[in-house]
């Protein structure tokens, strides 16, 4: 079987204020990536961007983004990502930066990584819990995350993690 190969970058949008994340949408992120690539690599980069670049998934609660790049030129396109300093969304400039966490050949491996990563984040916030009830809730979430059987909606860990932090 031959298929069209792509690379999926799992990136995290880091902002200084977490409420800015809620303004993001797919098109804004894709536009920021396109303009950064065009700025860095000129017309050639812009042309490569127009082939198969897409934003596959965006979680506005914790800023996780899946970007799809063609496999042949993903390193070139990736090298433009550090130069994104703000994303324009709904008429507002959001100062932020993209931090790449994982590069995968399929969405599935990225998803596995993301679940593991979010579990890790839960463990990180565990010592910061203020009272026992919060702590219990986080522990329960960690236990829920561990067996990734597919019966559970997969990205839930991420969104609940954000609720915990509030």
């Amino acid at each position: 079987m031959v298929r069209v190969k792509s690379r999926y970058l799992l990136c995290e949008v880091n902002v200084s204020e977490s409420r800015d994340l809620l303004l993001l949408d797919d098109r804004a992120v894709a536009g920021a990536v396109r303009s950064a690539v065009a700025r860095m690599h000129g017309d050639y980069g812009a042309a490569l961007c127009s082939i198969r670049l897409s934003v596959k998934y965006l979680n506005v609660h914790n800023g996780m983004v899946f970007l799809r790049f063609p496999k042949s030129c993903y390193q070139l396109l990736w090298s433009a990502l550090p130069f994104i300093t703000n994303i324009e969304s709904r008429g507002q400039q959001i100062p932020c930066f993209l931090n790449c966490l994982h590069v995968g050949g399929t969405i599935r491996t990225c998803q596995k990584f993301l679940i593991r990563y979010n579990t890790q984040q839960l463990q990180r916030i565990l010592p910061k819990c203020k009272n026992a009830a919060e702590k219990d809730q986080v522990c329960q979430e960690i236990l829920n995350c561990l067996p990734t059987r597919g019966s559970k909606p997969t990205y839930e860990g991420g969104s609940e993690f954000e609720d915990e932090r509030e």
Binding site: P82, C96, F97
Partner: peptide, 17 residues
């Protein structure tokens, strides 16, 4: 500023430039 930092994998890829 904190927003001028980049992740280690991004820097690695930047090294290619």
């Amino acid at each position: 500023k904190a927003l001028e930092l980049r992740g280690p994998y991004d820097i690695t890829n930047l090294g290619l430039l």
